[in-house]
Design a protein around this nucleic acid. Sequence first.
DNA 1: ACCTGAACACCGTTCAAGT
DNA 2: ACCTGAACACCGTTCAAGT
Lengths: 215, 215
Amino acid sequence: MTRRTDALSRERIVEATIEILDTAGESALTLRALTAHLSTGRGALYHHVATKDDLLAAASDGVIGRVLAEVGGHEDPAYAIRALALGIFTAIDGHPWVGSQLARDPGQPAVLQIWTSVGSQLTRLGVTGRARSDAGSALVNYVLGAAAQHAAGARRAPDQAARQEYLQALATKWAGEDPDAAELLRDHDDRAQFLAGVDIFLAGVSALRKPAGSG
Amino acid sequence: MTRRTDALSRERIVEATIEILDTAGESALTLRALTAHLSTGRGALYHHVATKDDLLAAASDGVIGRVLAEVGGHEDPAYAIRALALGIFTAIDGHPWVGSQLARDPGQPAVLQIWTSVGSQLTRLGVTGRARSDAGSALVNYVLGAAAQHAAGARRAPDQAARQEYLQALATKWAGEDPDAAELLRDHDDRAQFLAGVDIFLAGVSALRKPAGSG
DNA sequence: ACCTGAACACCGTTCAAGT
DNA sequence: ACCTGAACACCGTTCAAGT
């Protein structure tokens, strides 16, 4: 905070990277475009960043980090998980390149952050041990898969009429819990379908905790 | 079958593509390597293939198509879904480049094939209408997400001891249904966790069909 | 220590020229 | 119609040279 940020720094490079990705898309992110944007020489970047992949991972981590911080905690852990998932989905809707990037490396910081957040909410839900890592794996993989598919530009749309009807019903149901969520649902097909998937997993986790059928 | 396959054809090009990807990895697939492998000129490929992306999509479609054909139908639709998911997972384990490719474009033939297979098994399960497309979306996105993460080389491994114990239990349980599946499970952590996720999904679909709690 | 920018070793794709 | 292979317009990364 005290020093001038005029000089090149990893932070400034990551910032510029996010800006280019958001405004011009993933294909526009070349090191040449980036150095032009920062008005510096090509090799200068390599004093602050290991590789282009490193840069993409750092940019994704920045976006996801902000989302997870904003989402915060809701009292009901199941609701918190829905909010967490929806926050990630919304972020990827606004920054499609993040969706592609998250699918690329399971060990990158952004993905580990998501694991941690999901894990802590599952703990609050009362799920522990092996069941917790299974449920976490299921949820994280679902969210990342949906995110990548949506980011790549999902075009599936079977019958638009029935879908609108369903959307209304789901929005009404959710309105009881959070009017803002209901607002978001209206006219957002992919979002509604994504949330329906989250509910399927939550129902599955709950059902497997207290099985009421076989022995 | 009657004509000689000596000449260049889309099929021969796709075959050679799969071979290079399997033996040398995705980074080794260059059009230069491919033309060398086929001992032809660079531009010749473009008479049979639109672009390199087209080629990757065709190669993935070939692998997935074979898997879906082999998996066939089991009498119990829930079991058939597990077999389908496991088949895709195994294919991606053996051809990691397929996992990355499937995450890249939701409209490519291989992904549409997966949607179709999942959809028909869900119908056999008795799920229809809106519930069917929600469940299908959840399962497909989960499978593709897990596949991409696994393909990228998942390295998460918390406590190896408890995991081994769990594996044994799951393998024993599954042995009642299919000894071969139990065989596959032993010593395959990611595979077991993947299947646990499929079971969470199936439990969720079942639970949401006959809700036994709220009004 | 940090930066510059030319050079290096690649890419996917195109296209005039051949058969 | 199909194929050739040189040429084109790019890449990410490196590195001697500057300050």
